[in-house]
């Protein structure tokens, strides 16, 4: 799956959702597209899944141009969009049978498949209830089930765990991992680094419609600086603590009023070392913590700005010269 130099604008060019975005996903691997709200994740997925035409650029899935042969592409892909797209008034079973029929499976085959999928996604007990009564996690699972009617070669999951509680997320991860083991090529968007970390072979970080970094999760973390040791103390002790942290980290420290922080490689070891040193110097920390890099940190280090929504200011036309 390849996307080359995709550009997509909305509102007659006022909103530049994708700004020369290029991606590629090797067959049988998982690419996670990581980015904040408004980065262009959904737009990218919609273009690749034949729902949207880019203003320019070319996208191919399994070697087929999505703009030229959407029908062929649709036979190969499964899509589970950002918001569960199933018929709320119907039951889970109704929905899956309907999608089976729309994939031109026979009646009995559709029914068997619906039962199988409900079983596989632990929805058998609620199969005969209207989707309206489902929890967010159940809805998500059903939506995913609906995108697996015909074993898709390529699967798109747009923020599959956003809005789920920790248990729901773990369940969803398990389901996705099983799918990946089955050999599907997966493009997964997420706002969470740990999710990308858990599920993806490769991560592409996007912001303002551009890929700003890509690589394995380890490589990205290295770029971000891995874990950070963070110690907060009384103002009098800041200088002394800075000395200690520098010694342990061997990197430049960052001081923010009374908090001293620096990247560390062996987190747990560094923490023990720091505690020991503080104790020896008779310094009582107000707070001490190991911070794992968050999406914010990735953004901070990659873009120099905190993750934010893309708001494009209208360009004010300058008139004439100065007066």
């Amino acid at each position: 799956m390849i996307a080359e130099n995709l550009i997509k604008t909305y509102d007659k060019g006022k909103v530049r959702a994708l700004d020369d975005l290029s991606l590629d996903v090797e067959e049988g691997t998982v690419l996670s597209v990581l980015g904040p709200n408004g980065a262009g994740k959904t737009t990218t997925v919609r273009i690749l899944a034949t729902l949207l035409r880019p203003d320019s650029g070319v996208a191919t899935v399994a070697g087929i141009d999505v703009a030229k042969h959407p029908d062929k592409v649709r036979k190969l892909i499964g899509l589970s969009g950002q918001y569960a797209a199933v018929d709320e008034t119907l039951t889970g079973w109704d929905n899956l049978v309907m999608f089976g029929r729309l994939h031109h499976l026979g009646k009995q085959q559709s029914i068997n498949l619906a039962n199988e999928l409900l079983e596989r996604f632990s929805l058998t007990d609620s199969a005969r209830r209207a989707i309206k009564t489902y929890s967010g996690g159940m809805r998500r699972r059903l939506d995913l089930a609906a995108s697996l009617i015909v074993q898709p070669k390529v699967l798109f999951l747009d923020e599959p765990t956003t809005g789920l509680d920790p248990r729901g997320r773990m369940e969803m991860w398990k389901v996705i991992e099983e799918l990946v083991m089955g050999g599907v090529t997966l493009l997964l968007t997420t706002q969470y680094l740990d999710e990308a970390d858990q599920l993806a072979d490769e991560i592409a970080v996007i912001d303002h419609g551009k890929v700003i970094a890509r690589g394995s999760s380890d490589a990205l973390k290295r770029q971000v600086g891995g874990e950070r040791l963070e110690i907060t103390v009384e103002s009098d002790d800041v200088a002394k603590v800075q000395e200690i942290v520098t010694r342990i980290s061997r990197h430049a420290t960052h001081v923010d009023s009374r908090t001293v922080s620096a990247p560390v490689s062996n987190g747990a070891g560094a923490l023990i070392e720091a505690l020991r040193a503080l104790d020896e110097s008779k310094i009582h920390p107000l707070d001490i913590a190991l911070k794992r890099p968050s999406l914010d940190d990735v953004f901070l280090s990659l873009t120099g700005h905190v993750a934010e929504e893309t708001v494009i200011e209208p360009v004010k036309k300058k008139r004439g010269g100065r007066w």
């Binding site: 919609r46 034949t50 729902l51 029908d71 649709r74 899509l79 709320e88 994939h103």
Partner: peptide, 13 residues
């Protein structure tokens, strides 16, 4: 609005 039409459009129908 519910995205159902999108899903239909992503199917080979």
């Amino acid at each position: 609005k519910k995205g159902l039409i999108d899903r239909f459009r992503s199917l080979p129908i």
